[in-house]
Design a protein around this nucleic acid. Structure first.
Lengths: 311, 311
DNA sequence: CTGAAAGCGCTAACAG
DNA sequence: CTGTTAGCGCTTTCAG
C-alpha cells in the first residue's frame, strides 16, 4: 500500500468497470447550464452525486433532439449508471422508446411521459401557474399575456394550463393570450418588443421562467414602458437575481437545488433495488411577491395613450 | 452492422479505454457552477469538447482543497484526458506538485504557477483592474474600497494590484482600501453592510466580480443608500444580468465563453503533440460603462451626513 | 486482405 | 484465509 502510494498508483477504472459493469458516473442533460435555473439544478445534482461517490457528466442539449440523442449514446457507451434529463418532450416517440428501452435508469425533470418507464421529479406546475394568475387577478388585471416556450416544446404546458384555467375559473371574464417564443432573455425581449409596441388592453405579462421575464424588462426599459406602473410582470423559478433586478421580480419559486438532489436520490434508489419501477416525486412551489406587480388603473391608460401615439 | 443496430449494440467504452488508454472525457473543476461566470465558462468548455468528441465531467470544488483533491483523484482514476481547473491557488505546494506530476494535461483558468507545468488561460487582470480604477478616477472619486476574495485565496491579486497601482499612478493622492471576503452575493452583502454603516469618506466600491457587486447593491438598497448618487459601484466579469440590474452595472467585461473554449483548444493541442510544454493564452478585457458610476460631489456629502446620524 | 489471438488491469470465483 | 486464474469486451498485432 505504501509503495503503491509512492509509485503514484491509481486504480484503473476502465478495468474495474469492465468487470463490475459500474462506472460511478451519472449523466446530466440540460438545455443550457447558463440558465441560472439549470445551474442551480446542476449544483443540486452534483452535490448529491458527490456524496454518493458519483461523478457527473454535464451535457447541454439546447433542446436539440439530435444533440440530445448523441449525448445519450455517448453516455450509455460510457456506461453511466443513470441519466437525468430536463426534458424528453423534444424527442420523437421512437427516440423516447429507444431511450426508455436502453435499460439505463432515467429521471426526467418534467412531467411523466405516457407509456415510458421514466422516473420524474416535477414541481406542481399547475399550482404554480395558478399562483401567478391569482397574483395578477388579485391586483385587478383583466387583460394578460402569457409568454411560454415554442409550440414544438410543450414543456411548460401544465404551467400555462394552470394559469389559463385559474383565469377562467376565478377571473370573472378576464382575458389571457398565450404567446410562444424562445425561453431565454432574447426570446422574452423579442416577444415583449412585439407586444409592447401595440399592447392594446394588456396590463400584465406572465412568463414561464424568470430569464424570459428579464428579457421583457429589458424591452420595457428600452421602450420607456414602466414596470409595474405601465405593465405588471410575474416570472417563474425565482432565480437568485430575481430579487435584485429593478423592480424586484414577483415570481413563483421552485426548489431548484432540491429538484437536482431529489433526482439523484431517485437514481440511487433505482440502483439499490432490483425493481426498475419508475418513481415520481413532485415538489412544491411558492409565490414570491415583490414589486413587479401592481394594480393596473389610470396609469395604465396613460401608458396606452402614450404607446398608441405614432412616432 | 444492421443486426448490431437491431440488437441495440453499444460499444463498451471501458473495454476500448482499457486498450487504447483513452476515455474521451475531460474534467472541469470550478468553484461553483451557480456563479454565472463559471456557468458561461462551462458552456464554452462543453461546446468545444462536444465538437471534438469529448464529454465533460463537472466538479464543484467550493474552493475547498480537500474536495478539489478528491475530485482530481476521481478524474484521473477515470482516465480523463485532461483537466481544466479554475484555480490551484487554494492548494498547498505539495498538492500542486502532485497534480502537476500526475501526467494529466492541466489547464488553469488563472495565472501560471511558478515551477509547475500547468497551461493557463487568463485575462489581462492587471489591465482589468486598471480599467475599473480609471473609470472611478475619471468620475472624480478620491476614496474607494476594493472588495476582493479571502486572504488565503489570492486568485484576484493581479486584479487588485492593477486597481491599486492605477490609483497610485494616476490618482493624484486618491485612496484605496482593500477588503477581503467571500466572492459571492452574501460576501458582497456582508462586506457592504459593514462598510456602508460607517462609510467615512468612501464614495465608490469596486469588486473583483459582478456577483459580489450584486451583494453590495442589495445591501445598499436595504440601507437606503442610493446607487450611484450616494455610492458608485464597478464590478468585474460582465455577467449577462449585469446590464439588467438597477442601475445597470458598470463593469469590466471578460470573454467567459472564450476562456472555456480556449482551455479546451489548449488541451486538444496538448493531446495531439507529443510535447508536454505548457501553453499560455491571455485574453483581453473591456470596460462596459453603464449607470452605476457617477461623480461623487454634493449628493455624497448628504449621504455621509445621513448615515452618520445614529438611529 | 481476412481471421485468430494476445493482452489491457482489474474483480470474483475457486483451489489450496 | 491466502494465492491463482479466468474473463470482462475491446484493439492491435501477427499469421494465414
Amino acid at each position: 500500500m505504501e509503495v503503491a502510494a509512492q509509485l503514484n498508483y491509481k486504480p484503473n477504472r476502465f478495468a474495474r468497470g469492465l468487470v463490475t459493469g459500474r462506472s460511478n458516473m451519472i449523466g446530466l442533460i440540460v438545455s443550457d447550464v447558463r440558465n441560472p435555473y439549470f445551474a442551480e439544478v446542476a449544483r443540486g445534482v452534483e452535490d448529491a452525486a458527490y456524496a454518493a461517490g458519483f461523478d457527473v457528466v454535464l451535457c447541454n442539449s439546447d433542446l436539440d433532439s439530435a444533440k440530445q440523442m448523441r449525448y445519450f449514446n455517448s453516455l450509455t457507451e460510457k456506461r453511466v449508471e443513470g441519466i437525468i434529463m430536463n426534458s424528453a418532450t423534444g424527442l420523437t416517440r421512437a427516440e423516447q422508446a429507444y431511450i426508455a428501452g436502453s435499460g439505463v435508469p432515467i429521471v426526467l425533470l418534467s412531467h411523466p411521459v405516457r407509456g415510458m418507464v421514466f422516473s420524474t421529479v416535477t414541481i406542481d406546475n399547475r399550482r404554480g401557474g395558478a399562483l401567478a394568475a391569482g397574483c395578477l387577478l388579485a391586483a385587478g388585471h383583466r387583460h394578460m399575456v402569457y409568454f411560454t416556450g415554442p409550440k414544438q416544446h410543450p414543456g411548460f404546458s401544465t404551467r400555462v394550463d394552470g394559469f389559463v384555467k385559474a383565469v377562467r375559473s376565478f377571473g370573472r371574464g378576464a382575458q389571457v393570450t398565450v404567446t410562444h417564443g424562445a425561453q431565454s432573455l432574447e426570446g422574452g425581449y423579442e416577444m415583449a418588443m412585439e407586444l409592447l409596441r401595440h399592447p392594446g388592453k394588456i396590463t400584465a405579462i406572465a412568463t414561464a421562467n424568470d430569464t424570459t421575464a428579464f428579457g421583457v424588462m429589458k424591452a420595457a426599459a428600452q421602450l420607456g414602458v414602466k414596470v409595474p406602473e405601465d405593465i405588471s410582470i410575474v416570472g417563474f423559478d425565482d432565480v437568485e437575481i430575481a430579487a435584485l433586478v429593478h423592480p424586484p421580480l414577483t415570481t413563483v419559486r421552485q426548489p431548484k437545488y432540491e429538484i437536482g438532489s431529489s433526482a439523484v436520490d431517485i437514481l440511487l434508489h433505482l440502483f439499490s433495488g432490483k425493481v426498475r419501477a419508475p418513481k415520481h416525486r413532485v415538489l412544491g412551489v411558492e409565490l414570491m411577491e415583490r414589486l413587479s406587480v401592481q394594480a393596473p388603473s389610470s396609469t395604465s391608460a396613460a401608458f396606452r395613450r402614450k404607446t398608441a401615439t405614432p412616432k
